[in-house]
Design a protein around this nucleic acid. Structure first.
Length: 611
RNA sequence: GGGGACGUAGCUCAGUUGGUUAGAGCGCUGCCCUGUCACGGCAGAGGUCGCGGGUUCGAGCCCCGUCGUCCCCGCCA
């Protein structure tokens, strides 16, 4: 292989096959850089060595497929290329075959500058030839294999579940597949194998896993594709810590394939703590936390900053941001105001903190509380959100989605989330300076975290109902059931649900499930689902629960996201061979497409145009 | 559904206050070249300025609409 040659092979006869990465024609001497999956080797075609091979090389062009027969030679003094892995050797060709020609490609896989995504996706086969992409998919393959091996070693069984099924209870929109045999009936592609894996527990497969494709018809993001791959697993008789240890185990194995050793167990915090300290349920631990400064502010300072009495004031630090000029500061404030509304905020570096008339008396306290270093930027803020005492709890939950237990009765909690978002946006803005997001290939680049005790219910402001925050098979905390909160105080019910977070990205989420039919029925009722409705949607599952269901629980992790972060990429498209655009289009095969009339007829379908 | 950025040669991009013949680098084609490795030299080809409409004496540039790509909000266990 092209990348496998080194000085050890000096003098050996070899055959190389690959693509012409570059051609350098010196007349009677031609260099071809031949590329395959493993790397690039320089091939020398000397007219005096083989006139025939040399003549063929004259016709060779970029991306031609060639076979070279020749001898490995240590390059002469001063001819080594230190920029190339194989730069100490070259292959002197005695024979050259042009196995296939290539049209001039719209962009060259050899180029350092990458074309725009539209072109890359249309000519995906060319894009995938790029060494970076080849590396990503080698990494992905190895990671998946390491996880498989680990789980199998731990006694997990890999079991497949159907793609053509019925809706799973995940709340996302389904992709539907029309049935030819049953007019008007549709299969749904699974949003996850959730129900099947629980059934497998009931079936006695006490440790199941699957690297499973999942489908969700929702709008996309850089880290969301309509079809994606999950490492899905479920265990019987677990405590959640048992699930954590399994996940930490396979992640350690997976990261080891990339040469990164992880320290376990991972850090753990509750959902409430995450919101309170980071303003988000998936904290990026590479950045410092927020600090509540409410009790530190004097009434005079509140006056100066025009902060209403009731609102909490939060501070945080952007590391290494350096000193901002007045203009920069004003620009930043305007920008933030645009995105976050009036924040009553101020940006202060440590020096300014001490000289600012309003803040000076508190300088030391604030500096100490936010643990600011000299070059750090201190942000003191309270987004106002137009919140007042008049706002109902429901409206607040709408803003908040969840209602963490510790502030069930307070009105200003959405602020924590706003400030959390602000913290992330500002950190991204100063990313070049603080370097916290830079990947160096060490353990420190990967900050894992377990977030536990998620709320059981979330308030849907549009429909004015409580929904299951995770899914309706998640078990609430026993004490919350006993305290009657399922009916009296839904917002305060904690679930035995947990997320695993890496660098601010949710990698996966899982829960301990309900294994008792009576509890399950109570949950459905608490979600406003009638017994009939529950039976209609999940009847088969409720039946199964009644035949000796073991306590069980599990988790599912996004394989694509793991590989993305490990590869240092910022989009899933870099680690999915044939991804879709933000509008769920495959630009290479041009999918989705219009079916033929014959297909439509057989499927009993008719297209209606919505006006 | 909403907001933002982008769309000019095959690719990456520049294009001033609206002005006459739209440029650069890379790539491509031909010729030359025996030590290059982002080879070099000479010559050359290559444009529906995304698309449609409008304003104007005149539009790559201004306005409206539309399509596409990307990012974000909503949405998404």
């Amino acid at each position: 292989m092209c990348g496998a040659l080194g000085v050890e092979q000096d003098g050996q006869d070899v055959v190389l096959m690959g693509w012409v990465n570059r051609r350098r024609d010196h007349g009677n001497l031609i260099f071809l850089d031949v590329r395959d999956r493993t790397g690039i080797t320089q091939v020398v075609l000397d007219k005096e060595v083989s006139g025939e091979a040399h003549a063929k090389a004259e016709a060779a062009r970029s991306e031609y497929v060639v076979a070279v027969k020749g001898r490995v030679r240590r390059r002469g003094a001063g001819l080594d290329n230190p920029n190339m892995a194989t730069g100490q050797i070259e292959v002197v060709a005695s024979e050259l075959l042009l196995l296939n020609e290539s049209k001039t490609p719209p962009f060259s896989p050899a180029e350092d500058a990458i074309a725009n995504e539209e072109v890359r996706l249309k000519y995906r086969y060319l894009d995938l030839r790029r060494p970076q992409m080849q590396h990503n998919f080698e990494l992905r393959s190895k990671v998946a294999m390491a996880i498989r091996n680990y789980l199998v070693d731990q006694g997990f069984l890999e079991i497949e579940t159907p793609f053509m099924t019925r809706s799973t209870p995940e709340g996302a929109r389904d992709y539907l597949v029309p049935s030819r045999v049953h007019a008007g009936h549709f299969y749904a592609l699974p949003q996850s194998p959730q129900i099947f894996k629980q059934i497998l527990m009931i079936s006695g497969f006490d440790k199941y896993f699957q690297i499973a494709r999942c489908f969700r018809d929702e709008d996309l993001r850089a880290d969301r594709q309509p079809e994606f791959t999950q490492i899905d697993l479920e265990m019987s008789f677990p405590r959640q810590e048992m699930v954590f240890r399994v996940v930490e185990g396979f992640l350690t194995a997976a990261f080891a394939t990339a040469g990164i050793s992880l320290t376990t167990p991972f850090v753990q915090m509750t959902y409430d703590e995450a919101i309170k300290n980071y303003g988000i349920d998936k904290p990026d631990m590479r950045l410092p936390a927020m600090v509540d400064l409410t009790d530190e502010l004097t009434p005079e300072l509140r006056e100066t900053l025009k902060i209403e009495k009731a609102l909490p004031v939060l501070g945080f630090v952007i590391p290494e941001a350096g000193t901002l000029s007045g203009t920069q500061k004003r620009g930043l404030v305007d920008e933030i105001r645009l995105a976050f509304g009036d924040c009553g905020l101020d940006f202060l570096d440590v020096a300014r903190l001490k000289t600012n008339a309003a803040f000076a008396p508190l300088a030391e306290t604030i500096e100490r509380k936010v643990s600011a270093a000299a070059a750090d930027l201190i942000v003191v803020t309270t987004p106002k959100l137009g919140i007042s005492e008049k706002h109902s709890k429901g409206e607040l939950y709408g803003e908040l989605k969840y209602a963490p237990n510790w502030f069930s009765d307070r009105l200003e909690i959405a602020i924590y989330k706003r400030v959390g978002a602000l913290r992330l946006q500002l950190a991204a803005k100063f990313a070049d300076k603080h370097g916290r997001f830079v990947k160096t290939g060490t353990e420190a680049d990967f900050k894992f975290l377990w977030v536990t005790d998620f709320p059981m219910y979330e308030w849907d402001e549009e429909t004015k109902v409580w929904n299951a925050a995770h899914h309706p098979f998640t078990s609430p905390h026993e004490e919350d059931i006993k305290a009657g909160r399922l009916t009296s105080d839904k917002g305060a019910v904690r679930a035995l649900a947990y997320d695993i977070v890496l660098n601010g990205t949710e990698l996966g989420s899982g829960s301990i499930r309900i294994h008792r039919q009576d509890v399950q029925a109570e949950i459905f009722r608490s979600l406003g689902m009638s017994d009939e409705e529950a039976k209609e949607r999940f009847g088969f599952f409720l039946d199964a629960l009644e035949y000796g269901t073991p306590p069980h629980g599990g988790i599912a992790l996004g394989l694509d996201r793991i590989v993305m972060i490990l590869a240092g990429a910022t989009s899933l498209r870099e680690v999915i061979a044939f991804p879709k655009t933000a509008k769920a289009i495959d630009l290479m095969v041009d999918a989705p497409s219009v079916p033929t009339e014959q297909q439509m007829k057989e499927l009993h379908l008719k297209t209606v145009t919505r006006s």
